[in-house]
Design a protein around this nucleic acid. Structure first.
Lengths: 343, 343
DNA sequence: TTGTAGGCGTTATCAA
DNA sequence: TTGATAACGCCTACAA
C-alpha cells in the first residue's frame, strides 16, 4: 500500500501551523520556537511518519552532505582500505560517503564524475591510476576540470592536472626503496613483474625499479609485464620456471607476489631459500604469509584526501601531499649469495 | 573562479527559445522538435557548458535512476563480488550504483537506509548478515519496513521480514555439504571454526555443521568461536596447536582457512597430510592456494538481487530466491585414516 | 512545433 | 514567535 510520503506541507496541515514554522522545527534550525509549538510539530511529524526529502532539501540549499569516491577496482583491497579512510573522516563530519566502482574504465570514471556532479555532492575523490596514453584520457582530464569548476575534486593518485590537488604515495620511491633493499641483500639478478601495461602506476613503479638498479650498475631489463592480480603472479612464475630463474623477484603487488611464491613453491623452489620475493601493498594477509613488502598507506591516503576535500586540513590548495610508505621486512626475502649487507 | 553553473533557464535565454523547448531537447524526450531548433539548443548548451542538475530532475520527476547497495564490510571480497553483480545489471539498465559500507553496524545500516530513502533511490539492496539478538535489531527491522513502504528494499542475506524479498545462498546447506564431504573422506575428529558470535550467518553455518555431524553420529562440539578474518584462523590454529589437534578443520571462510593452514604449516603440520582444512567462499586466491572450499555465488546474488529490485526478473514478490552453491574439491583436504570413501 | 505556467518538497527572506 | 511567499532547477500538462 505504498502511501505517498508525508511532506512538510502535510505535517503543517496536520499541526495547524505554517509550513515555515514546521520547516524550522524539523530542519533543526536554531530558530527560537515556542516549546509548545515545537512539541506539536514533532508530534504531528511522528504521527504522519514524516521523513525529510533529501532531494528537495539539496535543491533548496544547494548543498548535499555527501562525498563521492570513485575507485578503480572494488575487488582490490587497497581501495577498500582507502575507502575506509574516507568514510571515517566523512562520517565524523556528518557526511555520507557513496562509493562508485569504475573498474578502471575512463568512460565509467567520466560517467560517475558527471553523475556525482549532478548529485551536487560536496566533494569528489578520484582514486586509482590511469592510462596516460589512452584515447580517452584527454576527455577524462577535460571532464575532471569541468566538474572541478563547481565541486571540489581531489585526486588520490599521482595525476598532474592544474588546480586539482593530489594525495598520494610516492610510487617511484616505493619501488626504488624495495629494490634497493633487495639489492642490499646481495641479490644481483633481479626480475621485476610489472603492473598493467601503460598504466600510470606501472610506469612510476618501473622507473623506480630501473633507477635503483642502474644506480648500482645492475641490469634492469629483466621485466615481465602483467597486472595486479594473483593470476599474473602465477603466469610470471610459470614463465620464469620454464626459462631462467632470477635470484630475486619484485612484484607490482602483494597479490602478484603471493601468486609467484605459491607457484614457485609448488615447483619445489624454496622462497626465500632459492629465490627472494617481495611485494607491494602490505595487504592484510601479508603478515601471515610472511611476505616482505612495502606498506602503502591506503587508509591514510583516503583520510587525508577527505580532510583536504572537506576543508578540515589545508585549504584545498595544497597541490601535492605525499603520504609516507615503509618497507616491511619479513621472511620472503633472504641474503643473497654475494654479499651480506645490512637489512 | 567557481562560475555558477548554467541552468536550463540560461540555455533558453542564450538560444532565444523557451524553457520548455530546451528542456525537451536536453532531457532526451521523444518529443518532435524541429531539427534546426534542436541544433540551436545543443549548440547553446555546449557553449554554456550546461550540465543537468540531477537533483532538480529527481525532484521534478520523482525518480532517481540510482540503486543503493548497503554492504557489511568493504574489506571482504565476498561483498566486492556481490557489488560487481549489482553494478553490471544496474548499468545495463541505465542505473548508477552507490555503495554504502555499513561496517556491520546496525546503526550505520539504519543511517544509510534513511539516507538512501531520502535520496529517493529506485531500490535498496541490503547485503550482509545481522545480529538477531542485538538491541538494535528490532529498530533496524522497523526501519527496513518503514523504508520499504516507499522504496523497494531487497535483502541479500537470509532475513525473515514480511514483505521483504530475499536473495541468498542456503547457508545451512553450505556448511552441511562441506562437512559431509569432509566426513566422507573418513575424518571423524572434526573441528569447526565459527564466524562472529551471535551473527546470523554464523548461526546458520553452525547448525549446518552440527546437523551433518550428528547425522552420522559424530560429536559436533569441537567448535572455536572466531570471525571471518585471517587473524581468527591464526588464533584458532594457535589454540589447537597448544591443546589437541583434530583430523580436519572446517572454517567459516576462506580467509580463516588460509590463516589456519599457514599457521599449521609453519608449525610443521602438513596440510592435508596431517590435517585437512576446508574453507567457505572460493575467494580468488583459493584456487591458487589449492584450498578445498564451497563456492558462494556472490556475483550471482548481487545480480539476481538487482534484477529483482529493478523488476527485470520476477515481480519483486518472490519471497525467497536461493542461489546454488557448490563444493569445490581441491588439495587442502585428503582421505582420512579410517575410511576410503568417495570424494 | 513551441510556449506558458504550475508543481515537486525545502529553505530562506520578509513581514506581521 | 509565526506566517506568506519567493526561490532552487527541472518536467509536463495544457495552450497557442
Amino acid at each position: 500500500m505504498k502511501l505517498s510520503r508525508a511532506s512538510l506541507h502535510d505535517v503543517a496541515a496536520h499541526a495547524g501551523l505554517s509550513l515555515a514554522t514546521v520547516s524550522r522545527v524539523l530542519s533543526g534550525s536554531t530558530y527560537s520556537i515556542r516549546e509548545e509549538t515545537r512539541k506539536r510539530v514533532e508530534q504531528s511529524a511522528r504521527e504522519l511518519g514524516y521523513r525529510p526529502n533529501a532531494i528537495a532539501r539539496a535543491l533548496a540549499t544547494n548543498v548535499n552532505r555527501t562525498i563521492g569516491v570513485i575507485i578503480g577496482d572494488i575487488t582490490d583491497i587497497y581501495f577498500a582500505e582507502l575507502v575506509r579512510g574516507v568514510e571515517d573522516i566523512a562520517r565524523s563530519q556528518g557526511y555520507m560517503t557513496v562509493i562508485c566502482n569504475a573498474e578502471r574504465s575512463p568512460v565509467q570514471e567520466m560517467a560517475y564524475l558527471r553523475a556525482l556532479h549532478g548529485q551536487n555532492v560536496a566533494a569528489i575523490l578520484l582514486a586509482g591510476g590511469y592510462y596516460p596514453d589512452s584515447d580517452q584520457n584527454q576527455d577524462l582530464v577535460e571532464t575532471i576540470q569541468e566538474v572541478a569548476r563547481e565541486v571540489r575534486v581531489t585526486c588520490l593518485t599521482d595525476r598532474h592536472i592544474p588546480g586539482i590537488p593530489v594525495v598520494t604515495v610516492d610510487i617511484h620511491s616505493v619501488t626504488y626503496d624495495i629494490t634497493r633493499y633487495v639489492i642490499g641483500l646481495g641479490h644481483k639478478r633481479i626480475a621485476y613483474v610489472r603492473g598493467p601495461d601503460g598504466f600510470s602506476v606501472s610506469l612510476d613503479q618501473q622507473r623506480g625499479f630501473e633507477d635503483a638498479m642502474h644506480e648500482v650498475g645492475l641490469d634492469a631489463s629483466w621485466q615481465l609485464s602483467g597486472g595486479f592480480g594473483l593470476e599474473y603472479g602465477r603466469q610470471a612464475a610459470t614463465f620464469l620456471l620454464a626459462n631462467a630463474l632470477p635470484d630475486a623477484i619484485i612484484a607490482a603487488s602483494d597479490d602478484v607476489a603471493v601468486g609467484i611464491t605459491s607457484t614457485l613453491r609448488q615447483a619445489g623452489i624454496a622462497v626465500p631459500g632459492g629465490i627472494s620475493v617481495a611485494g607491494i601493498d602490505d595487504a592484510k594477509y601479508s603478515q601471515l604469509l610472511d611476505l616482505t613488502t612495502v606498506r602503502l598507506p591506503a587508509y591514510e591516503i583516503g583520510a587525508t584526501g577527505a580532510k583536504l576535500a572537506l576543508g578540515i586540513r589545508g585549504n584545498h590548495k595544497t597541490p601535492r601531499t605525499i603520504i609516507a610508505h615503509r618497507v616491511i621486512v619479513r621472511g620472503s626475502t633472504a641474503l643473497g649469495t654475494t654479499v651480506g649487507s645490512q637489512p
